[in-house]
Simulated assay, not measured.
Amino acid sequence: MSQAEIIESGFSSINIGSWMWAFDITKDNTAGLPTFWGQIDYFTYSYCSAGDYKMIDKNLYNEIPASDTRKQWFHPSVLISWYKFYDSGRKAMGDRTWTNDIVYMRVEEMYLINAEANTRANHLTEARASLKALLDQRDEETASKVNDMNADQLLENIYYNWRVEMWAEGRGLLTLKRFHKSMVRGENNYALTGETISFEDSRLIFEIPEREITNNPNLQK
């Protein structure tokens, strides 16, 4: 997606060129209010539009430089999604048919995977090329510095881009674990405000259902 598309597209149509895997939502198959769009979009008749906001963590928002176009994705004071995942009607509670499409995978993720894998394999030339290709359409100021980054700097920048580029697309948990990071919950979080969450925190491990433990005699504890 070009610099213009990431602001103008609304991430709402299966016809967006960089979408690799998505679901075409229609009036016939929509699940209505209890959906992704019902949770995330202020311009959809939704929980978000009624005040149950899903916001970017304030600490992460503050990390985004002014030169990064993606900062415009978020409302500058409320920090809700404003230009990422929005109904094109741009009217509060305007979409009451819930027909915006759902993205599961897009090309930008492939650039981040390539950049990360090549950095970890010490193929820094290839890593820089992938990261720069993404940032050329996001943050030209940072893109101009990529060729001077060493391996550690590349990994830090790639981690940042995983968190910002893929915000609300379901990549946060495994990214945190893969990079062995801790996260301090920003002041705009409803729960656990200011708490540091480690990638090793037991709350981030899915538990085996009790019924499976009870009914499966072959399960090794």
Rank of each mutant, 00 (worst) to 15 (best):
S49M: 02
D68F: 00
I16P: 03
T30M: 09
D148R: 15
I80H: 12
D41W: 01
T99A: 07
H123F: 12
L124A: 05
F199D: 02
H123Y: 13
D139G: 05
Q137Y: 07
T214P: 02
E187T: 10
Y45R: 12
I158G: 11
W167D: 12
A191M: 15
E126P: 10
L155S: 05
Y45L: 12
G172F: 13
N62I: 03
S77Y: 08
A151L: 03
E5C: 12
K145M: 06
K145C: 01
I197M: 08
R90F: 00
N218V: 07
E156N: 14
F179N: 03
T26C: 11
E195W: 13
G51N: 01
E63G: 00
E63H: 01
S46A: 02
N62V: 01
R106S: 13
I213P: 05
A151W: 04
Y160G: 02
E108N: 06
W162C: 08
I208M: 03
V146C: 01
P34Q: 13
N118Q: 11
R128N: 08
A92I: 15
K71M: 05
R203C: 14
H75T: 07
G89D: 09
I7H: 00
I208P: 04
T26P: 02
L79S: 05
I6S: 07
R96K: 15
D139W: 00
S9E: 08
S81T: 11
D57M: 00
F23K: 13
G172W: 04
D201Q: 09
I16T: 07
I40F: 07
I56M: 09
D28W: 12
S144C: 05
G89T: 14
L124C: 05
T30G: 08
G194R: 02
P217G: 12
M55G: 00
S2P: 06
E165W: 08
F36N: 11
M55T: 13
S144W: 03
N122D: 09
N59G: 00
D101N: 09
A127N: 03
W82C: 06
S81C: 13
P76Q: 06
A66L: 08
W19C: 06
K145R: 06
L60W: 05
E63C: 07
N114F: 10
T97N: 15
E108T: 00
I64Y: 02
H75F: 11
S198Q: 08
R185Y: 08
G94Y: 10
N100Y: 14
N215R: 05
E212G: 03
R128K: 14
H180A: 10
S88Q: 15
M93N: 15
H75D: 14
Q3R: 15
I56F: 07
M110Y: 04
E109W: 01
M110E: 09
L192A: 14
A121F: 14
N218L: 13
S46N: 01
E116S: 04
N147P: 05
S2F: 11
M105S: 14
P34T: 04
D28I: 10
R70E: 01
H180M: 05
S46W: 02
R203Y: 11
M183G: 00
Y53K: 12
Y47Q: 11
S12N: 13
T125M: 11
E108H: 04
A191Y: 15
W98V: 07
A66H: 06
A66G: 00
W19N: 07
M183Q: 12
N100T: 11
Y42I: 10
N15M: 11
W73K: 02
E207I: 04
N62Y: 04
T214R: 14
M166F: 06
